[in-house]
Design a protein around this nucleic acid. Structure first.
Length: 839
RNA sequence: GCGGACGUGGCGGAACGGUAGACGCUGGGGACUUAAAAUCCUCUUCCCCAAAAGGGAGUGCGGGUUCAAAUCCCGCCGUCCGCACCA
């Protein structure tokens, strides 16, 4: 009578209802328990892609499920709207970045709405709104005043043709990706944020993040890279230009008697002094700096060094002189930019020593009597016993380390220290489309913060992109200002903030958005921290680390009450698709090819097509599937259902036509079930138990973010209902089924709910409860094994004792036949599950 | 090089150390139909024998622990991811 479910009509109808009734507006004054569910906000690149659909569907299931469980849910959406693609579009298509970005936001907002996400749109904002970035400027100044922001010379990739700074990934084979001009390295004065001040906190904080994937915690731990060791000083045999020593850092002070050389970075201050007097040294240093920094280049690069005339004095033996090298593998920005080489126990030092014929001494051995054993073809980096090391001889590595540090600190030539791999965060970007850094440069007063009363520093929109260089620099009038301090002529900072700053506090602004300040502390405290954060693993390090840092910094400043922004994190897998190539190697999109028997051919001309790997959907491989037409054809619920089916959420999901067809079939199946139901007086105990088990299992699966399992459970229940004869229990099961699918297929659920003439909307309904007593079956199946091999399965009432179970198993004809007269040596009984007969 | 994850039918994947392959997809057979779509039923890990009942093998490979291993331990192989000259 009701025919097919019409997703297009239903989707629109219910989306409008939710909107009108403001079902998903988060009330911070609510007395209900609060849940903050957040997905990483999108960059408005133009259109929604499948990755977005998957990400936001998962978040939506959680948000709707929590709401049904009686929580007050904050589930907001906004736009990470600053960034380079807008500037690229501006240059290519002559549209203003702001115009381009806002048009994209409009289009993408519509698409998100069509997917029926339970979002509180009243809190929407874009980071390019001055109402957002103005507050960001205020926060930046707070950090500035607290001494967490400083200015430092730093190298950038400079494209001389476009007169612009390039990100590392925009440098291809040493050339600018757009201009093709060889890229230069330039030193610019840039702003840095002292994230390293928080290195230890950020590291220790990871321990409390139990609901984060171990993988992400480990990645952050490695990124912070804490090493304990010793920093100490080699004095120079002859001081040069006021420099009389070299500070080095080592994690293995126990090997100090195995030293063969000292190596310094090409841009080490001492190297610069040496280069001033030594042409060869200068040339070598220049060569080191020119070397590429790509992974492949580093891997193949030879260990090279230049032996200077300088000699270092061993701190424990004034007669012992070590040659000082300038070496290409020493990094200026790790440790002290200098190290001492122990070829016997460090592979890199070993290779260097081989090349330059330096001594290779053994100072660690597996045992004391192996002290004279020479080092073989490789360095021995494993810990052991100190040998050939004077007062250290006989000490285990750990003890020897402690002893050297103790002596160094006593004598004053060194001290135990901790080093981090983490560097301070450079936040200056020589870009137009970003948050202006609220600083004014005055020739008399230096860098002066813009007074807070003058915020926001508005990014001017009347700029032109047709001339190379930074538009803010060329803008008539924008940067010319009076110094807030002395009133003299001064100029604005023309750099903008890294967009990672924008995404380091947006979740706080979602929770509280007063007009006159970044957020209200008490209001923010009602929602924060985010209980469930969902996004791609590509943000495992930078975004998540910066957001953690920013939160901790605000906490230190007394502006916020949480130390960790996201207590629960989930990283979802990618959406992938088969790739196709034509005979000439060019990529073909999925709608240019079709199946032809077992092969694939190009639709256009029937030419054979080579199928490639299943890979992440990407424009370059042309294997993307646009969600828009799929949505139009199948409706939001089928798309959402498919996104949740089959693949575990943290693994990749392969898009397939068959998969979406299957999801669509299920939507219709539920609709048929609901359309045809009617209650009778009959009871159906078995179905009732099945229902309660399913309610428990689906809840558990959603709680564990195992949506594929929840889907499988729902399928099972649906089949059971279909097979069951009409009864009161069947009717109830159908009503409950509608609630179970509501977080995943909300439009269908609403439509079914109203067809069943239920009060209110599913959006306001409660999650079904279950009776624990009904979760267990009265009748259980017991597996009977002989020597661990399954031989029979028997049905028995639940709760049979061991003796009865054993008797039952031995009474089976199959078992008797198998035993063939042999008597069991031992019988193992697992109650209600299994009997294993050892014969 | 260092660190980590993973490896189960034709495919995606289930499986507190206790009946491997739930559920979905694909495919085969059938029903309904003039026909098709839709829908429903049914089979579908492999091999052997078989009318059937049944038997054997099986979770990347090789060992081990256990009454019992996809699951725990050891050693390989492969795939993927992160970091990368970090002293």
């Amino acid at each position: 009578m009701t025919g097919r479910f019409d997703p297009n009509a239903a989707d629109r109808r219910w989306q409008a209802r939710w909107d009108v009734e403001q079902c998903f507006r988060a009330d911070s004054g609510s007395a209900k328990p609060k849940s903050y569910v957040l997905e990483m906000f999108p960059y408005p690149s133009g259109r929604i892609h499948m990755g977005h659909v998957r990400n936001y569907t998962m978040g939506d299931v959680i948000a709707r499920y929590r709401r049904m469980q009686g929580h007050e849910v904050l589930h907001p959406m906004g736009w990470d709207a600053f960034g380079m693609p807008a500037e690229n579009a501006a240059m290519e298509r002559k549209v203003h970045p702001g115009e381009w970005t806002r048009a994209n936001i409009g289009a993408m907002r519509e698409q998100l709405k069509q997917l029926g996400f339970a979002l509180d749109w009243s809190r929407e904002f874009a980071t390019c709104d001055s109402a957002y970035y103005g507050h960001e400027q205020a926060l930046f100044l707070d950090l500035f005043e607290a001494g967490l922001v400083y200015r430092k010379e730093s190298e950038v990739n400079w494209d001389p043709a476009d007169m612009t700074v390039l990100a590392n990934e925009q440098v291809i084979d040493g050339k600018g990706w757009r201009s093709g001009a060889p890229v230069e390295r330039r030193k610019l004065s840039q702003w840095f944020v002292r994230i390293t001040d928080f290195a230890d906190e950020l590291l220790n904080g990871l321990k409390s993040l139990d609901d984060w994937p171990d993988k992400v915690r480990l990645m952050q731990e490695n990124w912070i890279g804490k090493s304990r060791g010793m920093q100490f000083r080699f004095s120079l045999a002859e001081p040069m230009a006021g420099i009389d020593g070299i500070e080095v850092f080592t994690t293995r002070p126990d090997t100090i008697f195995g030293a063969s050389f000292v190596a310094i970075a090409a841009d080490h201050p001492l190297a610069q002094v040496i280069a001033a007097e030594d042409v060869e040294a200068a040339r070598f240093a220049a060569e080191c700096k020119a070397g590429g920094t790509s992974a492949a280049e580093i891997e193949t690069a030879e260990k090279k060094g230049y032996r200077t005339k300088v000699e270092a004095v061993h701190p424990l033996d004034p007669e012992w002189r070590l040659p000082v090298y300038i070496a290409n593998f020493v990094l200026m920005d790790y440790g002290t930019g200098a190290l001492f080489g122990v070829p016997g126990h460090d592979q890199r030092d070993f290779e260097f020593a081989k090349q330059y014929h330096l001594p290779i001494r053994r100072v660690v051995a597996a045992s004391g009597d192996l002290a004279s054993e020479p080092i073989g073809d490789e360095a021995e980096s494993a810990p052991g016993i100190a040998v050939n090391s004077h007062f250290l001889d006989g000490l285990a590595t750990g003890q020897a380390i402690i002893e050297v540090i103790r002596r160094a600190e006593e004598a004053g030539w060194g001290k135990g220290t901790v080093q981090y791999r983490l560097r301070d965060w450079g936040v200056s970007r020589q870009r137009y489309w970003g948050t202006p850094i609220p600083i004014i440069h005055c020739s008399k007063c230096g860098a002066v913060p813009v007074p807070k009363s003058e915020l926001p520093v508005i990014l001017p929109e009347d700029v032109d992109f047709q001339t190379p260089g930074n538009p803010l620099d060329r803008h008539p009038g924008w940067k010319q200002v009076e110094c807030p301090s002395c009133g003299g002529p001064a100029s604005r900072e023309t750099d903008t903030l890294d967009t990672f700053v924008d995404s380091s506090w947006y979740f706080i602004r979602f929770a509280s958005q007063p007009p006159d300040k970044p957020f209200d502390r008490a209001e923010a405290a009602k929602w924060l921290p985010v209980g469930q954060y969902i996004g791609g693993v590509e943000h495992a390090i930078l975004h998540l680390l910066y957001a953690r840092f920013w939160t901790r910094a605000l906490q230190r400043l007394g502006e916020i009450d949480v130390s960790e922004p996201f207590t629960g994190l989930f990283t979802q897998g990618m959406v992938t698709h088969q790739t196709y190539r034509a005979g000439d190697g060019s990529w073909l999109s999925p709608d240019e090819v079709r199946h032809n028997g077992d092969d694939w051919v190009r639709i256009e001309d029937g030419a054979p097509v080579v199928t490639g790997r299943v890979e992440k959907m990407s424009k370059s491989r042309r294997n993307t599937v646009d969600p828009a037409p799929i949505l139009a054809k199948y409706g939001a619920d089928a798309v959402r259902w498919f996104m949740l089916s089959d693949s575990p959420p943290d693994r990749d999901l392969e898009w397939s036509e068959a998969g979406i067809e299957g999801a669509s079939r299920f939507v219709q199946r539920v609709w048929r079930l609901v359309s045809g139901t009617s209650a009778t007086d009959a009871k159906d105990e078995a179905l009732r138990r099945k229902l309660h088990r399913t309610v428990a299992a689906v809840g558990e699966a959603i709680d564990g973010l195992q949506f594929n399992k929840a889907v499988a459970q729902v399928y099972e229940l649906t089949s059971a209902i279909e097979k069951a004869p009409a009864s009161a229990d069947r009717h109830e099961a159908i009503r409950t089924l509608v609630l179970l699918i509501a977080p995943m297929a909300p439009h269908l659920a609403e439509e079914c709910w109203s067809l069943l003439v239920q009060p209110g909307m599913v959006a306001g309904a409660e999650w079904p409860s279950f009776d624990p007593a009904l979760l267990v079956e009265e009748q259980v199946t017991i597996a009977v094994q002989i020597n661990g091999k399954l031989r029979d399965t028997l049905s028995a009432p639940r709760g049979l004792d061991r003796a009865a179970a054993e008797a039952l198993a031995l009474g089976s004809d199959k078992i008797q036949r198998q035993l063939d007269g042999a008597s069991p040596r031992k019988v193992i009984v697992v109650p209600d599950r299994l009997v294993n007969i050892v014969a």
